[in-house]
Simulated scan of single mutants.
Amino acid sequence: MSHKSFVITVMSIVLACVLSSASFIYFIDPMWTFGHANAYNDVQTVVDERQQKTNTIHFQPFEYDTLLIGSSRSTYINQHDFSGMNVYNFSASNLSVREYNPFIEYAKKRRGKEFDRVILGIDFFKTSRDQSTTTLSLDRYITKSNERFYRYKNLLSWDLLEYSYQNYKMSRDNTVLEERNYNRENAASARKISPEKVKQQTEGKIEKFREMFYGKTYAYNPQYKNILMQLKKNNPNTEFIIFTTPISTPLFKELVAQNRLPAYERWLTDVTDVFGGVHNFMYPNTVTNDINNYFDGHHFYPETGTLIAHRLSGETGDVPKDFGMYVTKEQLPAHLQMIRKKAAELVKSNEGK
């Protein structure tokens, strides 16, 4: 073989490999830039949730009338479970209350106008100074989506080739292997674990919250209410639907044990002052009392997310009566009294052990 022939052969092999790899990444679409669906990409791993969801909004038609925003807890609510609303779930892991505004503003820009509704999932542990002080934005994710040839440069990524193969295997086997996987309709699922593993992970989360979120370093952010007021001011024609994310009762018991009930009450007071009412799910009830509705006492399974969506949109036939209460500013004192009673019962039950 001549030198020229050898070079052509090698280059042809390299080109064939590159084209095959790029075609496979395109086929699986792990960064959600192309939007097509098939039997081998219907289970998707989380690469970078903020980037993936920003990519979807940037590259795909965006005609939703309702936006759902929250932390990783809210990612487990299926946007298709809301009755009478066309919802896009823009929730992401570890989302701070400071991120609500840039998320809403970007989605509004892509839609071309305000949303009819914005559904906010709010978390008590995100009221602390260290969890809600830093100002965050979507700028670097938006910039990346707007890079020239961004979608096509992704097709040459070795990392994305590995993610694509992982997605392919899960889709082929129709198996969810991670704490959070998505389908092509932006609905999250979670790997089911044994009751023994649930108990172990719940105990681990309680210890983490005791040390990191509810403990001595906790301080309520006095600007929390102002942040919410600014959201309302920035969206004067939008209906806000606010709900608290339900943690398991053992984790709520730790909140009480760490003397955070006054801050919890201040939180609900601030929220009802701003929005007039809140759908509260975060107190001991039928759902939160069963730790097997969670995989770690902190994140609920998508089935519980469905109950939340049904409660918020008025389809309550399958929702336990004590799961989720809409509380107005006027009703809040009585509601808090009910929760204090439940908290006292939790303390009493703990003393009896």
Rank of each mutant, 00 (worst) to 15 (best):
R140T: 12
F125A: 06
T45V: 15
T134E: 04
Y76Q: 05
Q131M: 10
S93P: 05
K144C: 00
E63R: 07
R73I: 00
I69E: 00
Q44P: 07
Y100E: 02
H58I: 04
S71R: 00
P102T: 10
F125I: 09
Q60R: 15
D65R: 01
E99K: 15
H80G: 09
K53S: 11
L95Y: 06
D42I: 01
T56F: 08
F59W: 12
D42S: 04
E99A: 15
D123H: 08
R140F: 15
R129H: 04
F82T: 09
Q79L: 11
D123T: 11
K109S: 13
V47Q: 09
E114D: 12
Q79G: 14
D81H: 08
D65Y: 04
I142R: 03
T75Y: 00
R117G: 05
Q52L: 02
N101I: 06
R98A: 02
D123M: 01
Y64K: 14
I77H: 03
T56G: 02
E105G: 03
A107Q: 11
E114M: 04
T56A: 08
K109Q: 02
Q79C: 06
S91F: 06
T75D: 01
L67Q: 03
H80I: 03
K144I: 05
I142L: 11
Y40R: 07
R148H: 09
L67I: 10
S72E: 05
H58K: 15
